[in-house]
Design a protein around this nucleic acid. Structure first.
Lengths: 229, 229
DNA sequence: ACAAAAGTGTTTGTTGTACACCCATGC
DNA sequence: GCATGGGTGTACAACAAACACTTTTGT
């Protein structure tokens, strides 16, 4: 069985750059390719589009199949279409980036896909295809976007101490921030709910926990409020 | 002759949202479709990708074929892949937006394509496919991007008075700006060359002309300078 | 002389930035 | 009692915003 078209068509794929954050680093999820080309090399999770499926669905489906991840924050990044980016033939790939709460998802990735692993963004092995370029583009987008969109929360558990939120920004922007100014600014925005809870299992004074209030943010955004760190 | 593939493939197209600015309005270039589907309706210029051609090339090629425009500022916007966006079959389109200096290009569009025309962004006829959505997305992108990237100059002739630059911002951001503050800010950035020339053929005091100095801007940007209006 | 737009500074309020200490808790 | 991070305020500088009049030129 095969499919015929009057004119030649490029193949279409979706690839995902999945970011997670742990105690040390900003991390990216890679899979080891089981087939040629680039068999055995590390690559971004992704795969071929099915007809009748929007590309975001393709990205989510492949992500689940290859890494077990579901229900992650996912946003389109850029479409890469250099005809030589795949040695086999012209393959257009629509790249997405995802942000996951590593605390929730660490387990899944390990169970569902033995050949998936997290790598520190500063310590990435050579990647298949043009995936270095895609990764670099995603990293730049993340750095740019985190400053004026409230996406940093996607990397944290729902309840988090301010220290962790500050660490998200410091790790992604790659510079240190002043604790007092950071708190003043983020609390001043009024998009965080102060919870009654405090941290547990820490070997020092426990910090108060906060939660991002998306509804409040959406209401404020509609009225012209601009999130910005 | 036809082309066969083991798995079904969506078709791939590139579409362009071409913005221009005249004395009155921000305008968009549309073409009237000569064939079905949507024959006779207005649509964004664009067409099918060729294998071996990067999609930006597709966009530029179709733009020239359909409207006569060449060497415009062109940047990828977003990829639209809803399987129902084309009634015939699943067509993934990679959308671009272009900025043109209407003063230079007005003529070409008229000669090379009788069925191309400029429409004010607030006065767009019903468009084919999901082109309204693409246009809306492009307009939002333009509004967002012009504030922190020096792309407004792409809509002006090389030499322009500050009044015209201010008008670019006012028309795209859709609000009025204070003349003194605007001049202070843009001149303070040091990315404009003050020319010896002044306007001609105006029925009032002629303004000094300026030119955007891209080299200076690039150098400053590399050192962390952020353009922002 | 009139119409049209060019060109120009100052004041005020707001926001960003820099900076250091005491407190609570677990070990 | 010590180590670790939690939590807090102030002063100064930089930037944004509001605002009005004189000058130049063409008709």
């Amino acid at each position: 069985m095969s499919y015929s078209y009057k004119y030649a068509r490029p193949a279409v794929t979706a690839d995902c750059v999945v970011f997670g954050l742990d105690e040390e680093d900003l991390k990216v999820l890679l899979i080891q390719r089981g087939i040629n080309p680039f068999k055995g090399q590390w690559a971004l999770p992704g795969g071929f589009a099915r007809v009748g499926e929007a590309l975001e669905e393709t990205a989510r489906r492949e992500l689940e199949e290859e890494t077990g991840l579901t229900e992650v924050f996912l946003e389109q990044l850029y479409t890469f279409s250099d005809p030589k980016r795949d040695p086999r033939e012209h393959v257009v790939t629509v790249a997405y980036y995802a942000l996951v709460k590593l605390s929730d998802h660490k387990v899944h990735a390990a169970t569902d896909a033995r050949n998936a692993a997290w790598f520190g963004v500063e310590d990435i092995p050579p990647l298949a295809f043009d995936h270095d370029l895609i990764l670099k583009t995603a990293h730049e987008r993340l750095r740019g976007k985190i400053r004026y969109q409230p996406i940093g929360f996607e990397l944290l558990p729902q309840r988090f101490p301010l220290r962790m939120l500050q660490a998200v920004y410091e790790k992604i922007l790659d510079r240190s921030l002043d604790k007092r100014n950071f708190r003043k600014k983020i609390l001043g925005m009024g998009v965080l709910d102060e919870l009654e809870e405090i941290e547990t299992d820490v070997s020092h004074r426990a910090a108060r926990l906060y939660r991002f209030n998306k509804k409040k943010y959406d209401r404020m955004a509609k009225r012209g409020f601009n999130f910005e760190i």
